[in-house]
Design a protein around this nucleic acid. Structure first.
Length: 818
RNA sequence: GCCGGGAUGGCGAAAUCGGUAGACGCGCCGGACUCAAAAUCCGGUUCUGGAAACAGAGUGAGAGUUCGAGUCUCUCUCCCGGCACCA
């Protein structure tokens, strides 16, 4: 009586075996080719969701595949452990954030272990642990000393009830998600990292990322938003000149007014002279971030009664304050050309400002239609004095040169990317290692005083960070002058932690430095796997951080992630699985019912990794059935004993050769699918095909059993990365002493793929009419003759003249008739 | 509005270089085993006609290139994702 498949019993045994042998612990070995496979680390929210399972299964399959290729594979796991949900939980459950977080980590680590992921757990890290953030603080102080960090006032979403900054995602229809209060735009002092210093390199190096999806590279390029233009100086009587940035210098002669941001210095001055202007600026301050984002804000403005001087014509240009001009982009002032910019056109039409067309559609046109909107295309210049008759491109050159001559302007590159604001007025985060001293200003905490530990035993009322009122944390001595000083109580944006964790996995145990030579061995990450939602934020920050670490001499690689795989979302009933929608499927219940292997097989089989995955209970059953079928196949085969006879390749009969051919065809396909194409679904399908063929192969002869054995081993080996537990057991049942994860990936015997005969499709005028069997070495003329003589082909070519015969060797014959 | 990705049976999908459309799985239909059920096994399953052989149609719509198009080109429709007053 054979055993039946019992994953609940089998999987823990296999997992204990891995643990006992520390099967996936790795050390640096220069003799071996390294492979660093990394999945984005999870936030310890409490339980794993199906998105995690999918992400980590993909990573595990790739890791185990490369391990079987004989590589030294590092696959670590850790916890992105700082962040808001811990604070929310603290309010709801009266549990300190630290305790809540560490409990969740313990629970989720257990869940990951039950899924059988081949992690090197000795390298586990949690970003909320002082051993981790120590080095983040240390690195921040280096950046401070290098001048890559600065503090400035910035506009934020401010919740007046909770007295705190809100992230954009926490503003719902203009109100604070928690208090319901109308969110204000407020300027507060924040720490910034000079990511714009690296804008050009971050854009340029996208070209090096051959292993990244085009979509992600395009999104990053758009986010960086490089544009080339000219900065032009407009003199203002009795005032400092106003700088404007434009990408269309060819339209300069069409400027009829200037628009400045409400926060512009000139606007502030004008407000001092006029109550009406002050009132308007106040109004602008109240405009909601949400409206600005939605683009629904109505354009409005007010005349300052000031005039700028046109740099080429010396004309007087009225200066308006306009709510749509952004202080953050360019210089916070725009030269308005209403004839050729839609936004300027709308504003000019509303306030009856003059509109002067200077760009015309063709070189000889005398009319341009601007009655319904601006003419925004390039064209030919008119009404532009000495530039008349030039094309937009020629005029841009000439005007730029002219401005340069007069010292009134120069070429400039602008970026949409802004410096990265990293201050958060939150408790559960890494303390910013700065001491504020009245005498010395902002002083970085000295190396020997690091880390600045976040007090974990605190009372948390949820409204403001307890750090703000914790005297023993905030009151310190200035490291420079030894006078009384206060500690910075803001914490880092949690993206700060996730921007360098990949490097720290190489040397988590190092207590004396951030990184060491082990990082040179493992970095860069060969394969990174994660959600597309991080396309710009995390993946841009991590690239930036890697360049900062490189420039600090901590690592050598320019880019952190050589290949990137972005997996699709997991949906149920057509929408993303989420707690708020109540449509989650708990992986834990599935593991309990079917075992980890079934769950892994399902997520890998049902869709290719980058597709969204629609949940299906029935498909899980299907995956479970396949493993059971495989189990019976192995049991039946092993029951009769492992065949002692070795394969006599040249003595096989037709059927035996057929199964061998299928076996090696399958190995070839699976190797390509997992190793190169990342199409795990088709790799599984190919194995299912082979299994189906094995089912109908009945041959108990010694050679028949040997052929069957080879086929079964191929299935077990090539499915081992996906079904590690059951294949571990299968491998033993097939008579092997060592574990399957240490076995080598099967090799392909190309000779088996050769066939004596092959089937060829015959088409008449592109339509399939017959399938003929042809000897492999048949000449084209011979093939044509057989094709033409085919009975069914004859039916379609009789009474017609054969015009052309196309023979594609190994594929088809197409006969073209009149 | 701009950028990117899609659209293939009842469903998830496959077709890797322009060469048999629908592999594999789910579901469904029929059969075997069984007192019965579950499980398992066998057969069928794009649509239309036909007992079958086979024929006709067919990859969002329309055109084009080609002996041959799911695949390439153009136009359009719809869906998904990202960005958006960026000067």
């Amino acid at each position: 009586m054979q055993n039946s498949y019992n994953p609940q019993q089998l999987e823990p045994i296999v997992q204990r075996d891995w643990e006992r042998h520390q099967a996936f612990r790795v050390t640096e070995d220069e003799r071996l080719e390294k492979f660093y496979c990394l999945s984005m680390l999870p936030y310890p929210s409490g339980r794993l969701h199906m998105g995690h399972v999918r992400n980590y299964t993909i990573g595990d399959v790739i890791s185990r595949y490369h391990r079987m290729q004989g590589k030294n594979v590092l696959q670590p796991m850790g916890w992105d452990a700082f962040g808001l949900p811990a604070e929310n939980a603290a309010i709801q459950n009266q549990v300190p954030p630290a305790q809540w977080t560490y409990e969740n980590i313990r629970y989720m680590r257990d869940q990951l272990k039950r899924l059988g992921f081949a992690y090197d757990w000795s390298r586990e890290l949690a970003t909320c642990h002082p051993k981790y953030y120590h080095w983040e603080q240390w690195f921040f102080t280096r950046l401070f000393n290098k001048g890559l960090v600065y503090k400035k006032k910035a506009v934020v979403n401010w919740d007046p009830a909770d007295q705190t900054v809100l992230a954009n995602e926490q503003v719902i229809e203009g109100r604070g998600w928690r208090s319901g209060a109308l969110v204000e735009r407020k300027e507060i002092a924040q720490w910034f990292l000079r990511i714009t210093e690296y804008a050009d390199e971050l854009l340029q190096d996208l070209g090096k990322l051959q292993g990244w999806p085009q979509q992600v590279k395009t999104m990053q390029a758009n986010w960086i938003g490089r544009s080339e233009g000219i900065e032009i100086i407009f003199e203002v009587k009795n005032q400092a000149p106003v700088h404007v940035y434009t990408t269309r210098p060819d339209t300069l002669m069409g400027v009829t007014y200037m628009a400045i941001a409400p926060q512009h210095a000139l606007a502030t001055q004008a407000a001092e002279a006029s109550a009406k202007i002050a009132e308007f600026i106040d109004l602008c301050k109240q405009m909601k971030a949400s409206e600005v984002e939605a683009g629904t804000l109505e354009k409005c403005g007010i005349d300052t009664n000031l005039y700028a001087i046109h740099p080429l014509t010396d004309e007087k240009i009225p200066i308006w304050i306009a709510n749509f001009v952004l202080i953050e982009y360019g210089s916070g002032a725009v030269m308005s050309v209403p004839a050729h910019d839609q936004r300027d056109w709308e504003f000019a039409t509303k306030y009856r400002l003059p509109i002067k067309p200077v760009i015309y559609p063709t070189s000889d046109s005398t009319f341009v239609d601007i009655s319904q909107g601006a003419f925004i295309n390039q064209g030919w210049l008119r009404n532009s004095a000495q530039f008349d008759g030039l094309s937009s491109q020629q005029a841009s050159e000439k005007i730029a040169a002219e401005l340069d001559n007069k010292n009134k302007g120069c070429r400039q590159v602008n970026y949409r990317l802004r410096d990265w604001g990293i201050s958060r007025q939150r408790y559960w985060g890494c303390p910013i290692p700065i001491i504020n001293c009245d005498q010395c200003g902002a002083v970085p905490v000295p190396e020997e005083d690091l880390p600045v530990r976040l007090p974990e035993a605190i009372d948390f009322d949820g409204v403001t960070s307890p750090l703000k009122s914790l005297a023993e944390f905030a009151t310190v001595e200035c490291p420079k002058c030894r006078g009384a000083a206060t500690r910075e109580t803001d914490t880092f944006d949690t993206f700060f932690e996730s921007s360098w964790y990949f490097a720290r996995y190489c040397c988590v145990d190092n207590d004396i430095s951030m990184l060491d030579e082990r990082a040179h061995y493992w970095m860069p990450v060969d394969q990174y796997i994660g959600g597309i939602e991080h396309a710009v934020l995390h993946l841009l920050y991590a690239r930036f951080f890697n360049k900062l670490m490189r420039d600090a001499g901590l690592c050598r690689n320019d880019e952190p992630f050589t290949n990137l795989l972005t997996q699709g979302m997991v949906l149920k009933d057509g929408t993303k699985m989420s707690k708020s929608k109540g449509n989650t499927v708990d992986p834990e219940g599935l593991i309990a019912k079917y075992g980890a292997d079934t769950v892994r097989l399902f997520v890998m089989f049902v869709a290719p990794p980058h597709h969204t995955l629609e949940w299906s209970d029935a498909a899980v059953e299907g995956a479970y059935r396949f493993i059971n079928k495989l189990w019976r196949l192995v049991e039946n085969h092993a029951e009769a004993g492992v065949p002692s006879e070795t394969l006599a390749i040249n003595g096989l009969n037709e059927k035996q050769r057929g199964l061998r051919r299928k076996t090696h065809k399958t190995i070839k396909k699976v190797t390509d699918d997992i190793g190169k194409r990342y199409t795990f679904n088709t790799a599984i399908a190919a194995n299912m095909e082979l299994v189906n063929e094995m089912t109908s192969f009945e041959d108990a002869s010694p050679q028949g059993r040997a052929v069957y054995h080879e086929a079964l081993e191929a299935v077990v080996l090539t499915l081992a990365p996906i079904l590690p537990h059951v294949c571990h057991v299968f491998w033993q049942k097939l008579g092997h002493a060592g574990p399957v994860h240490q076995a080598r990936w099967p090799s392909i015997d190309l000779n088996t793929l050769k066939k004596g005969n092959f089937e060829l499709v015959v088409q008449v005028n592109g339509k399939k009419r017959a399938i003929i069997t042809i000897p492999t070495d048949a000449k084209n003329a011979h093939i044509e003759a057989i094709a033409l003589n085919n009975e069914n082909v004859q039916r379609f070519i009789q009474n017609k003249k054969v015009m052309k015969r196309i023979v594609v060797p190994g594929r088809l014959v197409n006969i073209v008739t009149t």
